[in-house]
Design a protein around this nucleic acid. Sequence first.
DNA 1: CCTGCTACCTGATGGC
DNA 2: TGCCATCAGGTAGCAG
Length: 279
Amino acid sequence: MPELPEVEAVVRTLRPLVQGRKIRCVHVPHPIATKPQDPAQVARQAQGRRIRIVDRQGKYVLLVLDRGLLTMHLRLDGRLLWFANGKELRERANQGGNGVHVDVALELDQGVLGFADRRHFGRLHVWESVDDCPGLSVLGIDALSREFTSHRFAAMLSASKRPLKDFLLDQSRVAGIGNIYSCESLWQARLDPRRRANTLKPREVRRLHKAIVSVLARALECCLHPAPNFRDPEWWFQGLERILRAYRREGRSCRRCGEPIRRIAQGGRSTYWCRRCQQ
DNA sequence: CCTGCTACCTGATGGC
DNA sequence: TGCCATCAGGTAGCAG
């Protein structure tokens, strides 16, 4: 379920664990996790490769190998797990019905990285190069990057007639924002999620840009303290609800004006917002 | 090209 | 307790 701040925290935690390590062996107990790629092919391409760089683009986790590229997308429920070695992985994963769920395991020269998603939306793929990964090459400007300027944001907004909420979820424009932080950014910027992107005045564009940057930065801080714990399969980010002002607060009073927060459907997903102070 | 809809999966929660 | 409906942090694929 992670959006950009969660994925960034995962990447920062993962980097010291795996950067420079060699992938000795790849196990794929749940082949759905590499679909539509053939699990045997994925294993063959990754085995024996060294992990040069651990990076993130939008919501993708990237392991740049000495040849090729491994991508992981956690979608809604995916997580990473860490085991001391293959023995520990097998012991903990094979405890009948209550064993740890692991979809793909990368056995490294030191430690084992697990990719797990009980819901099986998440994906792990291997590519020859960045250009071969369609999801990656389509991504727009990363919301945490320096290229995400108010100026470029204004140009993108003016080219779209879509409601602001749908615009913000479109990864091909600004990459990394999901359902939570689109709601939060629009609340922070005091903008109606139903407004068409190309109707914003320059000062509203600047307000939204600033809101996105600060909402994501605040969420990232929250995601880093405490840092993700890959050793605990149940672990998830704590304290996020404390920083949320609109998301999942339907019926509770707006922290700015007291009006009850409403929930509406946009593009088949829930938008939470304050009808009084978001114009 | 752009937009909107469905499918993809599993689990948690709440009402009756 | 059980059963059913609804909701969940995302994106690919397809039709219009």
